[in-house]
Write a protein that binds this DNA or RNA. Structure first.
Length: 434
RNA sequence: CGGGGUGUAGCUCAGUAUGGUUAGAGUACCUGGUUUGGGACCAGGGGGCCGAAGGUUCGAGUCCUUUCACCCCGACCA
C-alpha cells in the first residue's frame, strides 16, 4: 500500500477520555475510532489486524476439527424465553422490535441458537461429537463501556459449542480446546496464563479463563512462578471482601504483595493483573435439557447432549496485543498481528535516487507477497519516523541520506535497533528478518 | 442503574461568575516560499446554527426549563 493513497488518519494527540495505552495508540494510529459509547469503527489498519487475529483463530480451530458457521445476529426473543435467559441476562440483552412489533435480541452469546441449529438435525450418537463455532459480532449492553476495545458494547467474539454423547467425551474436547487456545495465543505472540475460574452467568461446572498478563488488566489472578498453575482470585478466596480488596489494588501494589501459601508444585505464588481473552466452560446438559435437544444413544434412548462452550474475544485481542506490546511512542505489533510487516520510508521524495530504490524494493517485496507500506508522502523525515513508530510496523526501511554512500537502514520497532545495510543487500536482509 | 462531570473549529481547549461589537487560541487543513535524519519555519487563507428544543430579554455561547449525547467513580461483564 502506498501511504499517499491510504486512509490512515494518525494524530499527535489522543482524546482525553482514552486512558489506556491500547485505547490511545489505536485511536492515534488511525486503527479505530469511536462511534458511540462502546461502539467502534475499524479503519483500514484496524480491520487488517482484526482479520489477522480472526484468521489465526480460525486456522487453529479448523485444525482441531471444529467447523465454522454463522448464526444470525438478530434473534427472536422467544429463543431466550425458552431457556430462561431472557430474565437472567437482564438488561445486557439489547431488545428491539420489528415493524410488526415482534421482539428480537441482538445476540450477546449463542448457546440457544446453536442448540436449536443442531436439535433434530443431529439425532444419533453416531453423529457425535460435533464442535461448531462462529466469529461474529456480539452485543452486550454494558452498564458502563470503557477502555476502548477492551470493554465495548459491540465486539467481535469467537463463540464455539460442542456436542457430545458422554461427559467423558465432552471433557476430552474441553482439554483439546484448552490446548488449541494455548496455540492460538502463543501464535499471536502473547504472554498469557490459563486460570481456573468461576463460570459466571453462562452456567456450567468446569471452567477456565485465558488471561493476557497486562498492568491494565481488569482481573486479578494468582500465578505460580514455576508451573503453569493460575487461578482467578474469585475462586480461591472465600469472601467477597477479600476479593474486592484485592481487585482495588493497583498493579504496582499487587507486585509487592506476597502470598504465604506455596503452590502445590512448591513454587511461589504471586498476584498479576490479567485481561480475559478466552473462557472455556463445561456446560453439561443445561441448555440441551431446557431446549429439549436430544440424541438417541446406543440403546435407542433419547438423551440430552452433553455440551461445552468456548469463547475468544477477538476484538479485545487487538487491544490486548497493544496493552502488552507498546512503548511511549506507540504500538509494537507482533509478527502475526502486524498490519504491515515492512514500512519503506523515503526520507526525501525530491531525491529521485531514493524514490527509485524505494519503488524497486516495494515492487520486489510485493512480488514475494510481503505486506508492505511505502511511505511516499511529501513529509519530513522526523514526521514519517514518528508516524511509523506510532503505527508500529515491525520493520522500517529508511532510504535517506546514507544512500549517497550506498547504504540504507533497517529499523526494528521492538528493539529500536537501526542497522545499516548495503542498498543491494536490503531485499535479502528483509526477507531473512521477517 | 446510583453519584459526579463535560458538550464552543477535524482535535485539545479558553470565553459562561457579572448577557452587549464581527466568538478566540493552539494544533490540523489549503496556497505560496524556504527546509529535508526524529511530528520544521515564514507569509497568506478556509473552516462554527457555541449538543438540541423551548423560554426570559431590546439583545443569549453566557440566564431559566426540558431533552440528548459523551466521560469519570461505583455496582455488573468476552
Amino acid at each position: 500500500m502506498r501511504r499517499s493513497r491510504a486512509f490512515v488518519p494518525t494524530t499527535k494527540e489522543a482524546p482525553t477520555e482514552a486512558t489506556l495505552p491500547s485505547h490511545q495508540f489505536l485511536i492515534r494510529g488511525g486503527f479505530i475510532n469511536q462511534q458511540g459509547a462502546g461502539l467502534y469503527n475499524f479503519m483500514p489498519l484496524g480491520k487488517i489486524v482484526l482479520e489477522k487475529i480472526r484468521a489465526v483463530v480460525k486456522e487453529e480451530l479448523d485444525r482441531a476439527g471444529c467447523s465454522e458457521v454463522q448464526l444470525s445476529f438478530v434473534t427472536p426473543i422467544g429463543l431466550w424465553q425458552r431457556s430462561g435467559r431472557c430474565d437472567t441476562m437482564g438488561k445486557e440483552m439489547l431488545r428491539i422490535a420489528d415493524r410488526h412489533n415482534n421482539g428480537f435480541v441482538l445476540s450477546p452469546t449463542n448457546e440457544e441458537a446453536m442448540v436449536e441449529l443442531v436439535k433434530n438435525r443431529v439425532t444419533s450418537y453416531k453423529d457425535l461429537p460435533l464442535n461448531l463455532y462462529q466469529i461474529n459480532t456480539k452485543f452486550r449492553d454494558e452498564a458502563r463501556p470503557r477502555y476502548g476495545l477492551l470493554r465495548g458494547r459491540e465486539f467481535l467474539m469467537k463463540d464455539g459449542y460442542s456436542f457430545h454423547s458422554s461427559t467423558q467425551d465432552m471433557i476430552r474436547e474441553f482439554h483439546l480446546m484448552e490446548a488449541t487456545y494455548k496455540k492460538i495465543f502463543t501464535r499471536l505472540g502473547l504472554d498469557f496464563r490459563v486460570v481456573a475460574a468461576d463460570s459466571g452467568a453462562i452456567g456450567g461446572t468446569g471452567s477456565k479463563e485465558f488471561h493476557v498478563l497486562a498492568d491494565s488488566g481488569e482481573d486479578t489472578i494468582v500465578v505460580c512462578d514455576v508451573c503453569d498453575y493460575g487461578a482467578n482470585i474469585e475462586t480461591i478466596f472465600e469472601t467477597e471482601e477479600e476479593v474486592d480488596a484485592l481487585n482495588e489494588k493497583s498493579y504496582a501494589e499487587l507486585q509487592t504483595k506476597t502470598i504465604d501459601e506455596k503452590c502445590s508444585c512448591g513454587g511461589n505464588l504471586s498476584f498479576k493483573k490479567g485481561i480475559e481473552v478466552g473462557h472455556i466452560f463445561q456446560l453439561g446438559d443445561r441448555y440441551s435439557r431446557a431446549l429439549e435437544a436430544n440424541f438417541n444413544d446406543e440403546n435407542g434412548k433419547p438423551k440430552p447432549f452433553e455440551m461445552a462452550t468456548f469463547g475468544i474475544g477477538v476484538s479485545r485481542l487487538v487491544a490486548s496485543v497493544i496493552e502488552q506490546n507498546h512503548d511511549e511512542n506507540g504500538c509494537i505489533w507482533t509478527k502475526e498481528t502486524a498490519p504491515y510487516m515492512v514500512n519503506i520510508l523515503i526520507s526525501n521524495i525530491k531525491e529521485s535516487e531514493q524514490v527509485a530504490l524505494a519503488e524497486e524494493l516495494y515492487a520486489k517485496l510485493q512480488a514475494r507477497h510481503v505486506e508492505v507500506m511505502l511511505d511516499d508522502r511529501k513529509e519530513r523525515f522526523g514526521f514519517k519516523m514518528k508516524d511509523a513508530e506510532l503505527i508500529g510496523f515491525p520493520y522500517t526501511v529508511i532510504i535517506g541520506k546514507e544512500l549517497a554512500n550506498g547504504l540504507v537502514q533497517i529499523y526494528e520497532r521492538r528493539t529500536k535497533e537501526n542497522i545499516s545495510v548495503n542498498k543491494d543487500a536490503v531485499f535479502e536482509k528483509i526477507m531473512e528478518l521477517i
